[in-house]
C-alpha cells in the first residue's frame, strides 16, 4: 500500500484493517460511495492513493462535521433513506461496511446499492461465529462477544445474519458473489476462503463483493 506523503492526514497507518481489505477490492480511478463512512477514512484513502472520486454518507452528525472539516465530500444521511435519490449507475462501487445488520431494511438497501452502483461491497459481523453459537447454547442467553458487544436491549444491530444467510440472500436476490472472504475482528483475512461452512464458524466478519447476476 502506498503511504500518503502528507503527514497530517489521518488515514495512513491506522486505517481499520477491514477498510484496507475493502480498498484493495476497488479499482483505481473509479466512482465510489461509502455508506456509513464515519469520518471519511476510507474515502480519503481512496482519493489519495487510488485517485477515486469517493464520496460518503454518514448518520452521525459529529462524524459528518469532522469529515467535511477535513475537506471530504460527505453528507448527512443514512442507508435506509438516502439512496433512492441517486440515479441508476451513479457509482462503480457502493460500500457498506459493518452497517448492514443495523439498517431497517437490509434487502432494500442492497437492492438500492446495486441499482446506483455497478458493484456492492458489503461487510458485516457474522452471527454464525462459533463463540456466538457456544454462548447461546451454554447460557441460553443472548451472546455478548467482542464483536456483538452490546446487550440485546441496547444494540443497534437489529438484523444480524450469518455468512451462510448472506450467501442465501444473494442467491435469492440474484446477486453474483464476485469475491468473498472471512476476516477476524481486527480485519485480518482468515484462511477459510474456499470453505464457506468453515468461514461461517470461524470468521468474525464476512466481506463480499457483489454485482447483479
Amino acid at each position: 500500500m502506498t503511504v500518503p506523503l502528507d503527514p497530517v492526514r489521518f488515514v495512513a497507518k491506522n486505517m481499520r484493517l477491514d477498510l484496507t481489505l475493502i480498498a484493495a477490492m476497488i479499482e483505481p480511478g473509479t466512482r465510489v460511495l461509502d455508506i456509513g463512512c464515519g469520518d471519511g477514512e476510507l474515502i480519503d484513502h481512496l482519493f489519495r492513493t487510488r485517485g477515486c472520486d469517493a464520496r460518503g454518507i454518514e448518520i452521525d452528525m459529529a462524524e459528518v462535521t469532522r469529515a467535511v472539516a477535513h475537506g471530504l465530500p460527505v453528507m448527512h444521511g443514512d442507508a435506509d433513506n438516502d439512496l433512492s435519490q441517486y440515479p441508476d449507475g451513479a457509482f462503480d462501487y457502493v460500500v457498506l461496511s459493518r452497517t448492514l445488520q443495523a439498517v431497517e431494511r437490509p434487502r432494500e438497501v442492497l437492492r438500492q446499492m446495486l441499482r446506483i452502483g455497478e458493484r456492492a461491497i458489503v461487510s458485516f459481523p457474522n452471527f454464525g461465529h462459533w463463540l456466538v453459537r457456544w454462548q447461546l447454547l451454554r447460557s441460553g442467553r443472548m451472546p455478548m462477544t467482542s464483536v456483538w458487544d452490546r446487550p440485546w436491549h441496547e444494540t443497534p444491530n437489529i438484523h444480524p445474519c450469518t455468512i451462510r444467510d448472506f450467501f442465501a440472500l444473494c442467491e435469492s436476490e440474484g446477486y453474483a458473489v464476485e469475491k468473498w472472504l472471512a476476516v477476524d475482528e481486527a480485519g485480518r483475512r482468515a484462511p477459510w476462503r474456499r470453505f464457506s461452512g468453515l468461514a461461517n464458524v470461524f470468521g468474525e466478519q464476512g466481506l463480499f463483493q457483489l454485482r447483479k447476476a
Binding site: D53, R55, M61, V64, T65, A67, V68, L72, P73, V74, M75, H76, G77, D82, Q85, Y86, P87, A90
Partner: peptide, 18 residues
C-alpha cells in the same frame, strides 16, 4: 437541496451544525 444534488449525481457535502 442535498437530495436534489444527489439525484443529479453532484459532488455534495451536507452538514447540519448543532
Amino acid at each position: 437541496i442535498a437530495r436534489a444534488l444527489n439525484a443529479a449525481a453532484a459532488n455534495v457535502s451536507f452538514v447540519e451544525i448543532a
